[in-house]
Amino acid sequence: MALDAVAFGLRRIGRGTLNAVTRLGFASRFFVAVLLNSPAAFRRIQLTLREIYFAGALSLVIILVSGLFVGMVLALQGYEVLTRYGANESLGVLVALSLVRELGPVVAGLLFASRAGSAITAEIGLMKTTEQLSAMEMMAVDPLARVVAPRFWGGLVSMPLLTALFSTLGIFGAYLVGVKLIGIDNGAFWGNMQAAVDFRRDIFNGIIKSVVFGFAVSIIAVFEGYDARPTAEGVSSATTRTVVASSLAILALDFILTVFMFRGIGV
C-alpha cells in the first residue's frame, strides 16, 4: 500500500520535472523567437511606443506613490535607529543607498510585475482565447512580431525608468520627513548622501538590476500569456503564474546580482 503511494509520488515528481524541463525548453525557444521578431517591433515603432505607454506610463501613479511612501517610512525608521549612534546626519546616506541599491529595483519590480506584468499576460491570453492570434496567423501576420515582441520591449524599456522614478520619489519623501519634518540639517542630508553614494557602484548597479528585472518580468509575462490555456480559468491561472513567477525571479536574481555586485564591499 505504502509502496504504491511512494511509486505514485515518484511518478508524479518525474512527470512534473519532465513537464518543467519541456516547458523550459519551449520557453527558451519562445524567447529566441521573440528576439528574432524584435526588429519588426522596432520598424513599427508605434506598436512599441503604445506598449511603453500601457506598461510604463500607466504604472506611474502606483510607482510614484509607493516610492514616496517607502522613502518616508525609511526616513522615519532609519532616524529612530541612527539617533542611537548619534549618526542621524547619515539619514540621507541610509535612505539613498537602500533605495538605489535594493528597494528601488526590487519593490518597483514587484509592483511592475503585479500591475503591468499581469495586464500583459491577461491581454495576450485573452487574444489567444478569442482566436485573435489565430486570425492574425491566418492573415499571414506573425503574432510574435506584432503582439508579443512590442509588449516585451515595452516592459523592458519601462522598468529602469520606473525604478529611477521610484528611487527619486523615495529620496524626496525621505527629504520631506527628515529635513522638513524632523529637522535634520539640509546640507548634511544631501552632502553626506552625495559623498557616500558612488555612481558606478550604487546607481549604475541599481540600473543594471532594474534592466535585468525588467527583462525577467517582461519575458515571463508575454510567455505565460502566449502559452495560456484558451479558457477563462486558463487565462486567470496564467496571470497568477506571471505574478508569482516574476516575483520569485526578481528576488532570486536580486540575491545573485547583489552577491556579484557588492561582494567587493569592505575590500
Partner: peptide, 19 residues
C-alpha cells in the same frame, strides 16, 4: 505558407475581431 495565406481569407467563429 505566409504568401499562400495572403490569398486565403478566414472567418472565425464569433468573428475574432481585434478588440
Amino acid at each position: 505558407l505566409f504568401a499562400l495565406r495572403r490569398r486565403i481569407g478566414m472567418l472565425f467563429q464569433f468573428g475574432a475581431l481585434f478588440t
